[in-house]
Computed example of a mutant assay.
Amino acid sequence: MSPPLIVVLNGPNLNMLGVREPEKYGTATLDDVEALCAETAEEYGLAIDFRQTNAEGELVTWIQECRGRAAGIVINPAGYTTTSIAVMDALLAVDLPVIEVHITNIHRREEFRHNSYVSKAATGVICGLGVTGYALAIRAMADLVEQDEE
């Protein structure tokens, strides 16, 4: 039997990690984040599918494809956090555990970043811990998947 699949989705501009505002987002690249997620998933007996897009419609399609395929979703919706009802609706429709991740603490930033549509569909939210938040999300997802299997 294959290990449970966790889909790790990344929204717009995260392909610029490492060069975009390193004082806020750090110097780790998206490739570094993917390696961290792969290592953490392996440690917990999970498989991952790691993706990034700048297109809202593509992100919605990927979320929909998780239904019946994945055990859970880890998502950093980036700029779609505060704007995309479509992403929220897709997450609600797939009926899977969802962990929302943000590299920065969105609650310490500009006020428009404080309201997350995605949080309304998320099982949990991790923010402000840098890219380590991804590893914590996968660890938490391992616990959620184990609970679902019991």
Rank of each mutant, 00 (worst) to 15 (best):
N76W: 00
P12Q: 06
A137S: 04
A47G: 09
W62R: 06
K24Q: 14
P4W: 08
Y25M: 07
T82Y: 12
R113C: 10
A71Y: 06
K120H: 13
H107K: 11
L5K: 15
A35Q: 08
D31W: 10
A86D: 05
R20Q: 10
R51G: 01
G72C: 06
R69V: 11
V74G: 01
P3G: 11
V125G: 01
T29H: 07
P97V: 06
H107N: 11
P97C: 05
D49W: 15
T40V: 06
G26F: 06
C37M: 06
L96F: 09
D95T: 13
R67Y: 13
Q64K: 09
D32S: 14
I99Q: 03
R108S: 09
H114E: 11
T83I: 08
K120E: 15
E56H: 08
A90H: 03
G68Y: 14
T61A: 14
N15K: 04
T123M: 10
I75W: 00
V87H: 02
A86M: 11
H114I: 09
V118S: 00
E111V: 12
L59R: 06
R109P: 10
G18Q: 05
L9C: 04
W62V: 03
A47S: 14
G133T: 02
V94E: 01
A35P: 05
I6F: 01
A70D: 04
A41Y: 00
K24R: 14
D32M: 15
E100W: 07
D89E: 15
Y25Q: 02
R20L: 10
G26I: 06
R67I: 06
S84P: 04
N13P: 01
N54V: 08
E100L: 06
A70L: 09
T53E: 10
D32A: 13
R108M: 06
R67M: 13
K24T: 07
A71N: 07
G26R: 11
L30D: 02
I126V: 14
E100P: 05
W62P: 05
